Amino acid sequence: MSATVPIPRGAADVTRRWLQAVLGSDDATVVVEDVEISRIGTGQTGATFRITPRYASGEHGFPSTFVIKLPADDDGVRAGVTLGYLSEITFYRRAAEQTSVPTPRCFYSDITADGTDFALLLADLAPAIPGDQIAGCDTDAARQAVTALAGLHGPSWCDPRWLDLAVAMPKPGDVAAAGGLGEVARMAADITLGKVGARMDRRDRETFSEALGLVTPWLHAGTETGRFALMHGDYRLDNLMFDSTTNSVSVVDWQTLGIGLPARDLAYFTGTSLDPDTRAACEESLVEVYHRALLDYGVTGYTPETCWQDYRFGMVQAPLIIALGAAFATPTARGEEIFLVMLERSCRAIRDLGTLALIGATD
């Protein structure tokens, strides 16, 4: 933690003096006269605010608005998601500038040793808006998303320097962690079914339970491919900001940063963010777009056929992340609807693609 720019405990600590210190105004290059703070988002695992500063006259080159991410207001929630906070800080400190994935510019990042206090000061992406997880997206938006995803995977493809990164999910080859996550996944599946199972189709309940029971061998089999890269982990519409004025997309919310089989991110996106009929009609072309983008980043020895196989195999990422969220996140009405929609879509995708049979074949 910086001795001169302390981590704000809450929004009340984000003062004009704090922002001025962060922006490095000791040499009077910028003077912040006042700040206006307003909460944005629902903040289930953290609190997010928009900062609107009033600068003194003169050229300074800083944004007219910022977004600051802070821990959840509830200390109990903070303690439960500290690894997620660390993952996001780690991404912006070590990975953001080493990849080509479009993300907001980071002006400040810090975290305490125990992870319960952290802060990220980011450029505000407005007028960009997040995708609508319940409504889903069309094929044009999906192409934007999978192309942006390749900007994360391609530059980090099979690069061993990332294997020491502090991440939220088990790393390739970590047998104990894979086994532990498998146990947690089965527990999360039971909790999730207890919460929303009555509203799920019987086939989806069966697919969901079977997939979550195979998490450990699925992780082992993914490691055995020898392919890995940095992963977002929760790559879906709610975590993508679309700007219609520039026809661009930016990726946010890096609390599930991981290292693993890259196509898990790709499968998770299509399996949760497209309605099943749209996905079935366009997924082969989306995988082709993603694969071509990887080659443009210098990935070699990765055939279209292997990419398609990885995509099919990776679809277990969807029910896994959904279960962890549904079981342990603070419940909300919209959150439950999102989980149900994502479960329906991803369970259908698992059946359509024969994913579970692939795990059995490699186990």
Rank of each mutant, 00 (worst) to 15 (best):
E97S: 15
E183I: 13
C106F: 01
D110E: 10
R161A: 13
L120G: 00
V167P: 05
W162N: 06
D190Q: 15
G154M: 05
G182Y: 01
A166S: 15
V175R: 15
L193F: 01
L214A: 12
L149W: 07
A96C: 07
G115A: 10
L125E: 05
I134W: 06
Q144P: 06
A166H: 13
W157L: 08
C158W: 01
F107Y: 14
E183W: 05
P102N: 01
W162V: 08
V175K: 13
T99S: 11
A135V: 12
E206F: 13
C158N: 14
D201H: 11
W218G: 03
P130G: 11
E97I: 13
V167R: 11
I111W: 00
A142H: 08
A148Q: 02
P127Q: 10
P130D: 07
A211H: 04
Q144I: 08
A150I: 05
R143Y: 05
V146R: 03
D159F: 09
G151D: 08
S156E: 04
W162K: 08
A177Y: 02
R161E: 14
W157H: 02
L120R: 00
D138K: 12
V184C: 09
V167Y: 04
G180V: 02
C137E: 08
A145C: 09
E97V: 14
M200D: 03
V101T: 06
D124H: 05
M187S: 15
L120Y: 01
C137V: 13
K195P: 03
P155K: 11
L121C: 06
D174T: 07
R94C: 10
G194E: 02
P130N: 13
L125N: 01
V167I: 11
T192I: 02
M187V: 14
P160D: 15
D159A: 14
Q144M: 14
F208C: 01
A185Y: 01
H153F: 00
A198T: 07
A142T: 11
G154E: 03
A119M: 07
G131P: 01
T103G: 02
A145F: 00
W157C: 06
G182I: 00
I111E: 03
L214P: 01
A113K: 14
Q98G: 09
M187W: 13
P217V: 03
A150S: 09
F118Q: 09
T99Y: 06
D140C: 10
Q98H: 12
S109F: 03
A126Y: 10
D110S: 10
E210I: 12
M169S: 11
A95Y: 04
